[in-house]
Structures are given as C-alpha cells and as structure tokens.
Design a protein around this nucleic acid. Structure first.
Lengths: 222, 222
DNA sequence: ACAATAGTGTCTTTAAGACATTATTCA
DNA sequence: TGAATAATGTCTTAAAGACACTATTGT
C-alpha cells in the first residue's frame, strides 16, 4: 500500500514562532513525542489534511490553534523546503511560515515546550535550525523597512518598548530621536490617550495605524 | 487506487519566466496540451518526481531544461500556492519560482508558446494569473534595491540598456546621472574594455561584479 | 554642422545620524 | 532635590533628485 504513495511527497507545514523575551529574540520549539527524532526539539508543525484544510495557511493555523490555542497573530509564508534527505520517512515538502506572537500570548515553558534564543540554538530535528535561520533573516531584512517588529508587541505599546523591540530584532542600537521622527512623519502610529508606567515617567501608549506595513524609509538607524 | 492518494496533495512546481521584450516586461506561457484547461495558456510546470528530483528547485530546473532547453538562468523561489480549489484534479500544492531570462535565450514564439505583457494578461489556467502577479510584485519590490533586473540582460550590457531595464521593471523613469553614480559608488559593476553601438555613440559594456546582489540604497530614482 | 545617443558636473532637497536638551515621574 | 526614564530640538552629514552640460558617434 505504501508503494502507492511513492510518487507523491509527504506534505507538511511548519511554523517558526518568533517572540521577544527579556529583549532576546526567541523561537518556540517543542519536544517531539514520536519518531522520527523522538524527544528532540523541533518546530511545531504537522501534516496537511486535504479533507479539512482550505490551504497550507489554513493547515498551519489549525495546528497552532489546536496545539497551543493561538489565534489572531501575524502569519506569513516564509518558503518551502523540500527534498529526499530532510525527513527519514521519505521525500517531503514543508511549507514553512513565520508567526510573530507577543510573549504573553504564548504558553508557559514546560518539559515539552521551550523558547530558544535564535542566536544560540541546540541541535534540532530535521532541517529546523535552517528554517529558524531563514525566518530570522527574513524578519531582520523586512524589519528595518516595515512595522513587522511591532507584531511582537501587544496591541498597544509605548515608544520606548517599540524602540527596544526594533533594537532586538535588528540587533543594533536605535536612535530614539530619528526613530520617533520617522514613525510620526510616516503616520505609522496612532496615539491613544493612555499611558503606561514601567520605570519612572509614564510613556504614552500607541497602536499601529491600520494602513501600510512596509515603507520606503529605514526605520532602524545605526 | 485513487483513494490511497486522498490524504496526500498533488505536488507540482510552476515557473514564472520573466523577460524583457521591446522594453515590456513579459511572462512566458504555453498552451496546455492536456486536460484540465486543455488549450488554455498556462505557466510551464509539472509534477515533482520524488525518485528523480533532489528538491523542488531541482524539479523546476529539470522541467525548464527538458521543455525548453533553459539552463544557467536566475531562479528564486516565489512562494507556494495550495488548496482544494486551484486544480480540478484535487487538493494541490504548487511551489512557484521566478526565473529571469534574457529574451534571446528564450525560444521563439509559436502556436503553443507566447510571451505575454504582464500588465495585460488574458485568462490563464488555474491560478496562474495570480502567480504572475505575485512574481511581478516581488521583482518590482526587490528591483529597486538589488541588481536583480540585470538578470534580464545578457552577461555584458551597456549602462543605457541597464537603465532602460530598471525603468521597465520598476515602471518609472530613471535619472541616469544618479543611477550611474549609485552603481559606481556601490561597486556593483565591472567595466569591460569593449563597447557596443546601438544608436550613435558607442556605449561601454559592463558586467555585474560578483559580490552582493542586494544593497541598501535605492537604485530606482523617480 | 547637426542630430542623436553616451556620459559628467553641480546644485537643491530630503532623509539619516549624532547628540544635547527639556520634561515628568518616584524615592 | 536628584536619579531615572520619556520626549524634543538642532546641527551635521549623506543620499536622492533635478537638470544642465560636455563628449562621441553617424549622416
């Protein structure tokens, strides 16, 4: 019976869930409960269910919802990894996605779920370390020219928080004067009349303006 | 027997082959010789052959080589389209690629092969019009910040040719003074000591410097 | 000589970057 | 009142954009 499958690849989706914890960009991994790579850290993912899923996007949404109750987060297709070598079960395709989720919406860490510093990954199952690398590159590349990093924050946030987020994502120091200036000139933010106090002086809360996400100006200054 | 396949999607690759003809950005399409959509214009593509192909990239390379003798061109993964609705044969995945090929390396047009102006597409099979749209957006987006458009030209080219190419890809007028200045300052080009005469004064031929393809400065001025 | 195309020079505007200053809170 | 964090102002530098000019060819 297995032979009937030989000419159709195994089709899976995987998600690189990125978040920010203590100013560090981290990826969510879980211990694989089954073979292959049983017990190893791996990205959340699973088979596409043609009977159930409208598309690969729908498949990954279903899996993240069912496995960890996530919904309403930023999701974008990264790219598709494929080949005979990447999965011992056979020739496989993984349509891979990036999810950006604020830390507080992710589950707590336990024996089977962990947030790994993307700069310091252990050995992972399959080619999952490569997938995380590709996701981080994409986020860094787009980050300086879009409001993508803001997807790592809750709906409202202060400018210092946003600045720190860009700093962590782009791995560089942000000049807050130019940063604010650009955000304001481009109309990327919407002011709220609330404030949040983390340190001394309270900071105003903002939310993203609905309009565009990608801009033509570099938001991450050196 | 068909039933055994039900839980594995159909896996195909498709290529959006873009080229420049008479200053117009065009995509290569061919008439489908078989059902479904027999006789309709469609992108070149085909099934992944797990026994034969190392990866989806290898599959699309094989198909373009076998179907039209193409090799050694610029190829990059665009994204993966998937779902139950896009192919009447069943739930399918198309790993889609962009190929940039100089016009003279493509076959002549005939009854079954045609170059279509990407701004003016007829009805195409499957979701192929959408795939072309996505490819053009990607090229336009990356084009202003990389030497990607140069992949539409032969190995050596003149600066006026390159300028026209950027103009066609980005659909805007290029200021040749700034354009030259940026290319030179960034060291993107390598001078040859040959010239080509198309109009009056002969123009020097350049080739791309091997180094980087993506830069941090906007090469396409208004 | 002149039309046409290739290539250069220079000025203005705009964005980026650096850094100093003012403002508001808590202890 | 002073330490800490939030927010603004201003000057310098660099890139983008506009446009005029010079250079080299064929007719």
């Amino acid at each position: 019976m297995q032979t009937f499958y030989e000419d159709r690849p195994i089709c899976t989706v995987d998600a690189v869930i990125l978040t920010l914890e203590d100013g560090i960009l981290k990826a969510l991994v879980h211990r694989r409960p089954n073979e292959p790579y049983k017990g190893m850290w791996a990205l959340p993912g699973g088979y596409i269910h043609p009977g159930e899923d409208e598309s690969a996007e729908a498949a990954v949404s279903r899996i993240l919802r069912d496995k960890m109750g996530l919904s309403g987060f930023y999701l974008e297709q990264l790219r598709t990894f494929s080949g005979a070598a990447r999965d011992p079960r056979g020739w496989s395709i993984s349509v891979t996605f990036i999810a950006l989720v604020p830390r507080e919406r992710l589950p707590e860490e336990d024996d089977s779920t962990c947030l790994m510093d993307v700069e310091n990954l252990p050995a992972l199952a399959f080619d999952h370390a490569e997938l995380i690398g590709a996701a981080v590159s994409r986020l860094r590349g787009k980050g300086a020219y879009s409001t993508l990093p803001a997807m790592l924050l809750p709906e409202t946030f202060t400018l210092p928080e946003l600045e720190k987020t860009y700093g962590a994502v782009l791995a560089k120091k942000i000049d807050h004067s130019s940063f604010r200036r650009k955000l304001m000139e481009l109309g990327l933010l919407e002011e709220t009349d609330e404030f949040r106090q983390t340190g001394k002086r309270p900071a105003r809360l903002y939310r993203l303006a609905e309009n565009p996400k990608t801009v033509d100006r570099n938001l991450g200054t050196v």
